[in-house]
Design a binder for these strands. Structure first.
Length: 420
RNA sequence: GUGCCCAUAGCUCAGCCGGUAGAGCGCUGGAUUGUGGUUCCAGAUGUCACGGGUUCGAUCCCCGUUGGGCACCCCA
């Protein structure tokens, strides 16, 4: 039997309906913030990610799906979408458009990692980018928007971690201070941290080994190394969130894995997700455009939500909500079946969701209607065909009455909004 | 990529100390004519993940492969 390849999966009903529900909410809420959708290709020239994401990152150094095209060019399945969006921004001169660009996307990304809960080789991200402004107010608005989205979809018990990783002016000084401090304590840290101290000192801050924590807490904080511009920027972001009563935790140890981040970085975590507890991450990347060869400055900030993880966090929320079926039509016999096709079409035209049964046995039809969670079953047999009065049965109560074709729709009192 | 654990019906799982498999749920059919949910009866379904090895004989023991889970690395 051929199966889905390692780390990929099928999203089947009813889960697919839940995914679509979330996507509808995304479009609604992002739309209110005047974001517009951008759809970039699923694969790009490999060079884009090498330059955009960073040669030294794990993503680029060991997780990319890269292959040679027939003309010899190197192609990579996108491991994330920010670089692509920025590429499109530069390529199509979106900087020439009035105002700042606010773009959102959703779709599959690909990384060749070992799969585990909340981590897939094909996974799905919902993200947004604002390009063309370095104002801190934009950062605040972006965070506010994701907060709104999580609230609207019903995610519970999440935390917002906020940090500022400085800029090209103040970060080198911080790194020097950190290296110094690490040199004196690293022999007391865990194996991994000893290695990180040299390879990637920032990562030490991310260590979760309990025994290391008290020493790590004594290490220099990036917050103390901020230059004046970074400090002012961060203050505005924090102030905005406070004004909006959005709870956040200043987490100076938050380091993000992609090279392009500077100043504001953030992450939303949710405890129910297990080890992969990060549901979304984002930050500012004012230098990315230049790295990609843009001649005009294009400061930006963005985030991406792990949709697979978001869905996991919402599992309880969705529970076993039944799918919506307003009417199951049960035709008994050939003439009734023929009539029911037009009847179904009329009801669907009026907004009802309708399924027509094909089993001539009423018992079978009712069984199926029940299993499909139909609100009503419409019984159409020879008697009904003759009289033009159809037997409408309400499944929850079992009560039934004869209704004429004209009155069917109003009798059904179709709910205007079909949730899921 | 590394370590540990796991793989039996569509799903959740049982299967002693090696003798080629079972339950619950679900599914299909029936309990006389056009009435579902509860009930009763009957039935189907398994290359016991795959490939080797040991053995008279392997779902069970051993090795490998594939897939999954957990943790690490890292990240969404």
């Amino acid at each position: 039997m051929i199966k889905a390849v390692k780390g990929t999966r099928d999203i089947l009903p009813p889960a697919s309906g839940q995914w679509a529900f979330v996507e509808t909410r995304v479009r609604d809420i992002f739309g209110r913030y005047r974001y517009a959708e951008i759809r970039t290709p699923v694969f790009e020239e490999s060079e884009l990610f090498r330059r955009g994401v960073g040669e030294e990152t794990d993503i680029v150094s060991k997780e990319m799906y890269t292959f040679s095209d027939r003309d010899g060019s190197s192609i990579t399945l996108r491991p994330e979408n920010t670089a692509s969006v920025m590429r499109a921004y530069i390529e199509h001169r979106l900087d020439q458009l009035p105002g700042i660009q606010k773009l959102y996307y959703m779709g599959p990304m690909f990384r060749r990692e070992r799969p585990q809960k909340g981590r897939y080789r094909q996974f799905h991200q919902i993200g947004a980018e604002v390009i063309g402004s370095e104002r801190p107010e934009v950062d605040g608005e972006v965070i506010t928007m994701v907060f709104d989205l999580l609230q609207a979809t019903g995610v519970k018990d999440f935390q917002i971690l906020l940090n500022s990783v400085g800029c090209s002016e103040c970060r080198p000084a911080f790194l020097a201070k950190l290296r110094d401090a690490l040199n004196s304590v690293k022999s007391h840290l865990c194996q991994d941290c000893q290695r990180r101290s040299d390879a990637n000192p920032l990562r030490v801050l991310d260590c979760k080994v309990p025994a290391d924590q008290h020493l790590i807490n004594l290490l220099p904080s990036i917050l103390d190394s901020h230059c004046q511009r970074c400090r002012e920027h961060f203050d505005v972001v924090k102030g905005m969130l406070s004004d909006l009563a959005i709870p956040f935790i200043i987490y100076p140890r938050l380091v993000r894995g992609l090279d392009y981040y500077m100043r504001t970085t953030f992450e939303f975590t949710q405890s129910a997700l297990g080890s992969q507890n990060s549901i979304l991450g984002g930050g500012r990347y004012d230098g990315l455009a230049a790295q990609l060869g843009s001649r005009v400055p294009a400061p930006g900030i963005g985030f991406s939500i792990g949709q697979d993880r978001l869905m996991m966090a919402l599992e309880e929320e969705f529970g076993n909500r039944p799918s919506v079926l307003d009417v199951f039509i049960a035709p008994l016999g050939a003439s009734a079946t023929r009539l029911c096709s037009t009847l179904a079409h009329t009801l669907r035209g009026g907004g009802a969701s309708v399924e027509v049964g094909f089993d001539a046995k009423l018992k079978r039809a009712l069984e199926l209607a029940h299993k499909l969670n139909a609100r009503y079953t419409l019984i159409v047999g020879d008697d009904e065909v003759r009289s033009g009065q159809y037997l409408l049965k309400e499944m929850s109560t079992g009560s039934q009455e004869l209704v004429s074709r004209q009155h069917l729709l109003s009798k059904l009192s179709i709910a205007t909004e079909h949730g899921i």
